[in-house]
């Protein structure tokens, strides 16, 4: 690689690859954290159904980012048009609210219920705020156990506001990582220069390889173990250095490279 253009190409390629993979490494644990936090907070609110909706576009539409409960899979990436429903109001107004069925009515009217077949009877919706901006809505729906469900209380509304603060930080971090991811993807998909078309093909081919997928899985695993504490990090380092030492001592290895 003595050609200067080739070196430049290789540098750009490396930077791009790092950008995309860093974003991947960030978004995956954040997605898992958002879901875990939903589960933990919903349990504390004595609710089995919860979801995070985020602003989707400039008009104030909402999209389900994460959900737990009976119809979680159906909600994935479902959208709510601006200003519609309780979540739409909470996003636009910044006002948390709790709504409960009154005794004589059996089901809650909502577009989402119509699509999923789920029966919402009591709901608490709280805005997600980050640096003065409302970026989404946190919802807890129904209670654990059988209906009729107790309405959410003012104390639970205050508690949900605290949960919403923490959730907003997670969602904001996720959105930043996703932006980085999108940036990398856009560079690859929009590039029309000849060298970028080569790069695009190379990168797409690389992503398809089993070896690359296994390396990424390993990186995620390593990150998860080492995020648990200093002892785990030391242990990881010790094991990996031992493997590397063993590998270097062999003329041929099936472990690395």
């Amino acid at each position: 690689m003595s050609n200067p253009d080739a070196n430049d190409f290789e540098d750009r390629l490396k930077r791009l690859f790092e950008t995309i993979d860093t974003a991947n490494l960030l978004t995956e644990p954040l997605t898992a954290s958002i879901k875990n936090f939903l589960e933990v907070s919903a349990a504390d609110m004595n609710s089995g159904e919860a979801s995070v909706l985020i602003r989707d576009g400039a008009d104030g539409d909402l999209r389900f980012l994460s959900a737990i409960g009976e119809v979680a899979a159906q909600l994935s990436n479902m959208t709510i048009p601006a200003g519609r429903g309780i979540a739409g109001f909470v996003l636009s107004s910044g006002q948390p609210m709790a709504v409960a069925d009154v005794g004589e009515e059996e089901t809650f009217y909502a577009d989402i219920d119509k699509e999923t077949g789920y029966s919402t009877q009591t709901i608490l919706a709280t805005p997600l705020r980050h640096k003065g901006e409302i970026i989404g809505v946190l919802e807890y729906i129904n209670r654990r156990g059988a209906p009729p469900f107790m309405p959410f209380t003012p104390d639970e509304m205050d508690k949900a506001a605290v949960f919403a603060d923490a959730m907003a930080s997670l969602v904001s971090a996720y959105e930043s990582a996703k932006l980085l991811h999108g940036l990398g993807d856009r560079i690859v998909s929009d590039a029309d220069a000849a060298d970028f078309s080569v790069l695009r093909k190379w990168l797409f081919d690389l992503r398809e390889t089993r070896e690359h997928c296994e390396m990424m899985d390993l990186a995620v695993l390593l990150r998860e173990i080492s995020s648990r504490g200093e002892i785990e990090r030391k242990m990881c380092r010790g094991i990996l250095e031992a493997v590397l030492g063993y590998s270097n001592s062999k003329d041929e290895t099936t472990y690395l490279g």
């Binding site: 069925d101 009154v102 959410f152």
Partner: peptide
């Protein structure tokens, strides 16, 4: 503003909690 019973969509009623009520 806690569990206020009032009019809602579909000619119905709901119990509502929030400052906006």
């Amino acid at each position: 503003g806690v569990n206020v019973r009032t009019a809602w969509l579909g000619n119905g009623y709901r119990n509502l909690t929030g400052n906006s009520f």
